[in-house]
Design a protein around this nucleic acid. Sequence first.
DNA 1: CCCTGATTCGC
DNA 2: GCGAATCAGG
Length: 174
Amino acid sequence: MNWTDERVELLKKLWAEGLSASQIAAQLGGVSRNAVIGKVHRLKLSGRGRATAAPARQKKAASSGTGTAKPAARAASTPRHVTSSVGATALQVQFDAEPVARSYVRPEADNVVVPISRHLQLVELTERTCKWPNGDPLSEDFHFCGNDAGESGPYCRYHARLAFQPASERRRSR
DNA sequence: CCCTGATTCGC
DNA sequence: GCGAATCAGG
């Protein structure tokens, strides 16, 4: 993936709007959050909403000899078609109250970062599929996200973030 | 554990 | 220039 003009522009925009590097990476698609951060730095766009200060970096430790773990395979090139809504791509959801306290579903409450949904029906859910609901439960097109949720919760990482992160984000920007 | 951005450095 | 690995922190 190369940094085309449009992608850079979108990056700038999303960064300026306060999205996190990983969120931006997810929206751009095909890049890691590190790539986004690296690009941001190269563009000299650092320093936005405080997250972590910059005291002073140390240099990397040249790992030689004593094999202390091998990262080996890391990468996540998920071939996805991102809906490039160039123009009105803003909005992070904002919770004023409990994430799940609602007994009804907001029709258009998920425009955040989730790259793709698998539109699973209820019967197709397994223990490892994201159970984030989409749509009106009373409607026929009601479905679930269905992405791999791992074993650490009922949602995939994106929806888990939607549901649970806002609180900790709030705590961090204390 | 999850996450965040920052930095270094091999490519 | 790019981004993975790493670091430092919440």
